[in-house]
Design a protein around this nucleic acid. Sequence first.
DNA 1: AGCGTATCAGACAGATCTGTCTAAGATTGC
DNA 2: GCAATCTTAGACAGATCTGTCTGATACGCT
Lengths: 198, 198
Amino acid sequence: MAPKRPSARERLLQTADRLFYAEGVHAVGIDRIIEEAGVAKGSLFYNFANKEALVEAYLDGRDQQRRTRVQKYLDVLEDPLEKILAVFDALQEAVELPGWNGCPFANANAEAPAGGMEAHALKRFRGWMSDLLLGLTREVGFKDPSTVASKLVVLYDGAVANSNLDAHPGAVRIARDMAAQVLSDAVRDSGDRKPSRV
Amino acid sequence: MAPKRPSARERLLQTADRLFYAEGVHAVGIDRIIEEAGVAKGSLFYNFANKEALVEAYLDGRDQQRRTRVQKYLDVLEDPLEKILAVFDALQEAVELPGWNGCPFANANAEAPAGGMEAHALKRFRGWMSDLLLGLTREVGFKDPSTVASKLVVLYDGAVANSNLDAHPGAVRIARDMAAQVLSDAVRDSGDRKPSRV
DNA sequence: AGCGTATCAGACAGATCTGTCTAAGATTGC
DNA sequence: GCAATCTTAGACAGATCTGTCTGATACGCT
């Protein structure tokens, strides 16, 4: 039997995700979304209160996707040092996907007024990433886990921005190498409490 | 005698710079620009062919501004190692200015179609920054100047993104510290050809 | 079968946005 | 002083964009 066609809601979400991410939220009108999704205009407003709600759903989906991808890499590891580096491996996977266009939350925020829903989505994702890295640096037992975590976040941001702006996927590898160096220096600084190797 | 009022063109550019940078290019209409600039609509299209030309002039101005600021920091130094770190000091100054909102070229590019004028402006600025750092690492005499320069660019990008996204001006300092560490490691790796201290 | 939910096609309204045009006035340089 | 350039206020056109409404139709579950 033929595979069932996804619901109008799903088609809208998928199309909105693709277009919003590639071209920006403002640049893509609902007429184009419904046309490429093959959905009636009425169905859009039946499923979403307005365009902003659709944008929010798009960002929610991206948020979920990113967390899931990172978690997939963390779940197979035990050592917190390895887990930290695995965050960069997860990013590498994302960067190599076709259509990579940088951080969707940062992109949306760049064209939205301050303090809006986009800013909230951005803050939420970044808070999660920061907390994750801080938790891992604490777990390692660094002398100053928050400083190490701050460095890691800067490296993560640099990898995201650079890989996008220069279309240079090697940036993630470079950032990962620097992260490994930061961890190695911090391990030495914290004495030999941990037998882990980086 | 009273200071002469700037020309319509200058008022337009100044207002456009402020609004485009703070709220995004798409989100700000020409009606708002001419109103806040106190300029007739006809004067806008007399001085600029269309909105896109105004956006281009805005990005050009930002490009010039950034290069000038960096150059100001470089001109007082001799040692290429110090010059590299001074790039981060120049960034620190920019980040601390009121209204800092990240990289104007990246912001504009995030809401423009790929391959457009915004992408070109972004590429131009980033090319300049990359070449600057690569030239300085060559001048230092590192064994592998391009790898060192790549790391520095990632750190620079991370500082820009992080300081904006987290409203965390300390990010530049963190990136600068990591840059100093990278340079120090690379100096050691290149032997004692250079007596410079970081 | 029948009922509620979801979807369809498309006209329509209302807002907004870029850009044009006119006709007059201000400024500047020669 | 004159001519070229710059600026003004605002009406207007044309495109686009969000969102509403109608009325018919398909689907899913009991």
